[in-house]
Design a protein around this nucleic acid. Sequence first.
DNA 1: AACAGACCGTATGAAACGGACTATTACGAA
DNA 2: TTCGTAATAGTCCGTTTCATACGGTCTGTT
Lengths: 206, 206
Amino acid sequence: MSTGRLSNTSYVVLGMIGLRGPSTPYDLKRGIGHSVGYFWPFPHAQLYAEPERLERMGLLAVQPEESGRRRKVYTLTGLGRAALREWLSSPTNVHFQMRDVAELKLFFNELGDPADVPRLAREQMAQHQQRIREYERMQDRFGDQPAVARRMVTLRLGLEMEHTALRFWRSLAGTADDIALPAGAEPRAYARIAKEDSPQNEGPLA
Amino acid sequence: MSTGRLSNTSYVVLGMIGLRGPSTPYDLKRGIGHSVGYFWPFPHAQLYAEPERLERMGLLAVQPEESGRRRKVYTLTGLGRAALREWLSSPTNVHFQMRDVAELKLFFNELGDPADVPRLAREQMAQHQQRIREYERMQDRFGDQPAVARRMVTLRLGLEMEHTALRFWRSLAGTADDIALPAGAEPRAYARIAKEDSPQNEGPLA
DNA sequence: AACAGACCGTATGAAACGGACTATTACGAA
DNA sequence: TTCGTAATAGTCCGTTTCATACGGTCTGTT
């Protein structure tokens, strides 16, 4: 039973196992892929190394699967659960961190061709519209399942951020139209964006 | 003159020198500190290593200062300027990346005490209000200087994101009041927030 | 049996991280 | 003149993260 500091990634692992119950690294990978991964990205390789560390610290317990592949199934220990609770109740005085290549390009735009900006803006609109569809699909699929309802709240923030970004880039795109509808997209999602998005245009900076 | 891939950090350095003209690493550090650093954070130590790399690649030229300290002053070469332009005109099909401990804790909230959430929300409100004040101060200070006006546009996005986040956390804080005014804060900033922020409450998810 | 395709895990070198630590300069006070 | 100290400027270095390529394994199908 060794010691060592717990990183935010450690808490993602602990928390995920807390929510899902006994899990293999691969389970975690998938679970994270469409939830926490949106606001705490990291490479999946860490999901094999980190639980081992946590097990050495006594925060997780391992046992091999019964079935053919005998993967490692991790469970929270009492210590692990306590660490998690302590983390959740400790103050969080950090600001979120944003990493945005598009903003980078926008900031430096005077050094390039003026036509770069509307093009960039349209590319970003596509990004955000796609992300919004992704989030809405999740909301439709899981929004009414009481078991997960409580974690859907982060999705709401995600959606609002996306709408804000979309609105911003639209204002730079130099056209009133949305970009072309990609094949296979539900028009409903777009309709929703248009409907819900426009009243916000009276906002502070639009 | 070596080769090697250019990272986003490389472009930050090139771009910053492009905007500011000849610069020392320390100049860059300060310049980045209240601009690009907000959407592309990285440790300042890189601002000493990266220009060297870029110089080896022929994208920057160095010359030592005249004055006492003989610091290294970097300038864009034609090659550097071209690399920058090419980057600016190339497609950007990545989505911004967000790293938010607060959302992490919110997502896992069911594993802790229910009282954790409003506390977290208030902490985050403070973070965002402070950031908004920071941004507004910049806007007041530089908003009317034509030399920098074109890069202020990213500030607008930053502000909108902050307002969105603030609104979200306020809705979770369980109180209608803003948090207490810290000593020394201009009340004006708060007044603005309150005024500009509220009409948005009719938005999609509030 | 062969194969495809999803599933699952490992390996690895290169960057990035962060934060402590050092050195330099300026400048006013003692 | 020396001292103190604050701001400026740069370095170092052990630890994490990162990206990504690669290697195995299982299941179902033909």
